[in-house]
Amino acid sequence: MYNEYALSPLTSASFIQTDQLCVKEWELASFIQIDCWSGCEDQVIALLTQHQDKRFLVLHTAPDRLVVVSTNHDLFEELSALITQDVGMLTQLSQARTAFHLSGHQAQTILQKGVAIDFAEPVFPIHSCKQTSISDIGVTLHRLDENTFICYVFRSFAPSFHHWLTRAI
């Protein structure tokens, strides 16, 4: 049961909903970074694949660096047991990020205003991520399908990112 004291930085923010675009905050329960020791990345991925609970997605954000995102609040404890320190180091960042979920035909158009990366699928495949920045705010851009994206930004930047998104529309 999640904590009654938890407050998102976007509690008083309003979001856009049209037939071309839907923006909302995605309830990010876990955002865990795994820094793999050299040569251990494949082993870590194999261990993650073995985890019974499939309620998470793995993002490959840098060489030897994986991020696991999930709606499961207890994932850090579970992964700590599974991935030991000789294979990789886990960092709890679940409250360090805010997730913005964008979907609709306009989602790409909006993002292209801040991102100089080609969204063509060979360059930015579905289920992959791009670590970049939008308007000087660091963003992990996660593509769920052709027109659905999640932007993970540092929590402290969330209001500014929301401000940028609103204006870009």
Partner: peptide
């Protein structure tokens, strides 16, 4: 490109 005033640079806020 719209990067002026409030939008010139981002701001970070604490909880």
């Amino acid at each position: 490109g719209g990067k002026y005033g409030d939008h010139f640079r981002p701001t970070r806020y604490t909880s």
